[in-house]
């Protein structure tokens, strides 16, 4: 058990990009992640707009929204003392999210390649066709006005045209670079969580205070109503997940309690 983390520890970053304190990097990483996950909310709008999305897109959007509370909660507590449980849950969520995200990237990449990736210049992509029709129809409302959406002009052979190979290269390179960044961000989160756990363990031992902090579980009273019940259940689930996450990571990093 001890040998496994040591391999990982060697590649964990101790500073964000070698210079920035790790906790600052974690703040930025979580901020970026939260912004990215907001895309899931807009994906659900397809229910209203009628834009077709497939099963895997639904799953992706759902997962994005589901992990948002974990990241938001962690971001609010980056510098808070005693945040090890919260970050344990965040760390495990982030690792799983990254692994699942890589599969989704691969899946969506292949899907894009076979639907749009080999569409020649001048052709409309299948996905944009219906939108373009709708868009133009919408613009014809109030057609008496002179302010019309102008018909597309045929591109003149002039400066600025990008070649297919250049575009494809940029798409592939960007995907690889973003994926590498994502892996690095995951390592930074793992490193930060590991150091927090280690620090807490050392502090506990050195101060000879082995007592576990009493968890202030609130007791649900039936008279409080169903909203209170939901809150109680949510907090209970969150505390439970955080506790188990910390226990799991303590074992993984071979940190003595």
């Amino acid at each position: 058990m001890r040998s496994r983390p040591s391999t990982l520890v060697r590649i964990l970053p101790l500073k964000f990009f070698g210079v920035i304190p790790l906790y600052l990097g974690v703040e930025v990483i979580l901020g970026i992640t939260i912004l990215n996950k907001a895309g899931g909310v807009y994906g659900f709008f397809s229910l209203i707009t009628g834009h077709p999305i497939n099963f895997w897109q639904w799953v992706y959007n759902f997962l994005c929204v589901a992990v948002l509370p974990v990241y938001v909660s962690s971001l609010m507590n980056v510098t808070t003392k005693g945040n090890t449980k919260k970050f344990s849950l965040c760390c495990i969520t982030y690792v799983l999210d990254t692994i699942i995200g890589l599969f989704f990237t691969l899946h969506f990449g292949l899907w894009w390649y076979f639907t749009e990736g080999n569409v020649n210049y001048g052709e409309r992509s299948r996905t944009s066709d219906s939108v373009a029709m709708h868009f133009k129809r919408a613009n014809q409302i109030g057609s008496s006005s002179s302010q019309k959406y102008t018909e597309p002009q045929m591109p003149m052979p002039t400066y600025g045209e990008s070649s297919l190979s250049r575009e494809t290269f940029i798409i592939l390179a960007s995907t690889i670079v973003v994926t590498l960044f994502r892996l690095y961000f995951t390592l930074a989160i793992v490193s930060f969580t590991r150091l927090l756990l280690k620090q807490e363990s050392v502090a506990r031992r050195s101060s000879e205070r082995n007592e576990v902090q009493a968890q202030g579980f609130e007791v649900y009273d039936e008279g409080d109503g169903w909203i209170a019940w939901i809150k109680y259940e949510f907090r209970h689930l969150r505390d439970d997940l955080e506790h188990h996450s910390k226990h799991l990571l303590d074992r993984y990093f071979a940190i003595q309690p």
Binding site: G39, G43, I48, T49, F104, E116, S130, V131, H134, I171
Partner: peptide, 15 residues
């Protein structure tokens, strides 16, 4: 499409 599974602008501009 590769990163988010779809073109979200198309999703929102469809209606």
């Amino acid at each position: 499409t590769v990163m988010y599974g779809d073109n979200l602008s198309s999703v929102l501009a469809a209606f």
